[in-house]
Design a protein around this nucleic acid. Structure first.
Lengths: 253, 253
DNA sequence: AAACATTGTTCGTATATAAGAACGAATGCG
DNA sequence: CGCATTCGTTCTTATATACGAACAATGTTT
């Protein structure tokens, strides 16, 4: 480790524990962060003392602590409309009987801020706080539609990776779809991010800029034409409502 | 600032931004953390670079960033039963038509992990991730019932502060109620934390230890006797279900 | 039982950070 | 228009941290 930025160390330690529900031992953290364990020892201790990390005696593993949860929730609270948006997401679910998401774009990834499951038997397995490549989902495409074709190209210098057989891998095809979305204000996706799931999404705009998006995910066997039309109508209504809501209020990503 | 622990600095900076939806300028952060702004400048920069902080050009204020949200959600994900618990919370709301919470205890405070609003007109204004003194709420008392009277006394060396006119301020009265809760496994509270709200809660136990709690909050004008009885029954059912759920699985705070 | 592989922990010194004043750049105000 | 008050930024040196090997303490394997 050549970089001696102690703040960066803290960040790398915390990030190394994302997607690790079991946690990691001090030695494992040291290895994955490429830092000597003697160096991270006091850092990990301080973090654990303040509950940003949690230490499990049995497994002797560290994982993300409750204080991170509290701090992270502050992000949502900053959107002073978070409760209303949650209600709107819930309303979408009630009307469509399918899982709905509210998400924003961070770089080239979609970050889900809210998720409401449908009460139908088959549920999506997505989770809030998760991050996935934008180009592979309807909600991501809705968000990307706020960017110009050049900006989209710049976001994916390595091109588009296949996630399922139906994932779009051509930037030109993607930009073609984004052009449509800019006009129609609705985005579609079929099995491009997970099999047997189709997704419909609308961009949420403020002052002409795309700041967020709503989506509904449907198992394809339930995605008949009239169902899709109904979902589309519900999403357009939600779009209107949330845009009215945030028109005057500050709303940031 | 005498303490030169750089990790602690990061923590203090992040924590100083909790409950500050508007954010703070670099100077304000420096003042509230009692650190020279020249010192925290590189720290804040690194945090912002990695989106743990967010900088607003217009107000030139820093606030909690999206990456904190992602990291914090990892805490919930670690409870591999989080989705089922969310469903259970939702079920409580559907059956009671009132706001339900799921929370754990951290020190002497309640930390809400999940919240589901009722669709009724008047809603609670609580928020997930928030932290409030345990003794003032039904859910807090349910959680405290896992402690002995001595432990409870130790938790509040300064005694109990008044939040509303009806807040319990005597540790002995509190411990008396906790004794009841240990026997009956149900906790009540009326306007002790917020006016016009009454609350009913059940502790969630694993191996005889209280690890979490469910609660339902009701505006007092809707809290008739038969309503309370119904809520009590729903909560007992939820308690049974979640205890079965976590019996075999690892479940930690 | 002994060797091994874990875990976390300590320590001296090279090296990077922290303090705090002083700087420049905006903005607000009289 | 200029004084005053923000904002962020830079700089030098005292001072604290990071390295990384060697440490103890468990638990696992042979």
């Amino acid at each position: 480790m050549e970089d001696h930025n102690p703040t960066l160390r803290v960040i790398r330690i915390l990030e190394s524990l994302i997607g690790q529900p079991e946690g990691k031992t001090l030695t494992e953290i040291a290895k994955s962060c490429e830092m000597p364990k003697g160096s991270i020892f006091p850092i990990v201790h301080t973090l654990a003392d303040h509950k940003l990390l949690r230490y499990d005696d049995l497994s002797s593993k560290y994982s993300i602590g409750i204080r991170c949860y509290e701090i992270g929730n502050e992000y949502i609270m900053q959107m002073n409309v978070s409760d209303q948006i949650r209600e709107l997401t819930k309303k979408i679910v009630n009307q469509c009987r399918e899982t709905a998401h509210f998400a924003v774009l961070d770089g080239s990834d979609v970050v889900y801020l809210m998720k409401q499951d449908s009460s139908e038997a088959i549920r999506m397995v997505s989770s809030i706080g998760k991050r996935i490549p934008a180009y592979s989902t309807a909600i991501g495409k809705a968000l990307l539609s706020g960017y110009s074709d050049e900006q989209v190209h710049a976001l994916y210098p390595e091109g588009l990776q296949k996630i399922t057989d139906k994932t779009i891998t051509s930037l030109d095809v993607l930009c073609g779809q984004l052009g449509e979305i800019r006009k129609t204000k609705i985005a579609y996706e079929t099995e491009e991010s997970s099999l047997n799931i189709t997704c419909i999404a609308v961009p949420v705009e403020k002052n002409g800029e795309v700041v967020a998006a709503f989506s509904v995910s449907i198992p394809i066997f339930r995605a008949a034409k009239e169902k899709k039309e109904q979902v589309k109508a519900v999403l357009f209504e939600a779009k209107e409502e949330v845009e009215t809501l945030i028109r005057t209020l500050p709303f940031h990503i």
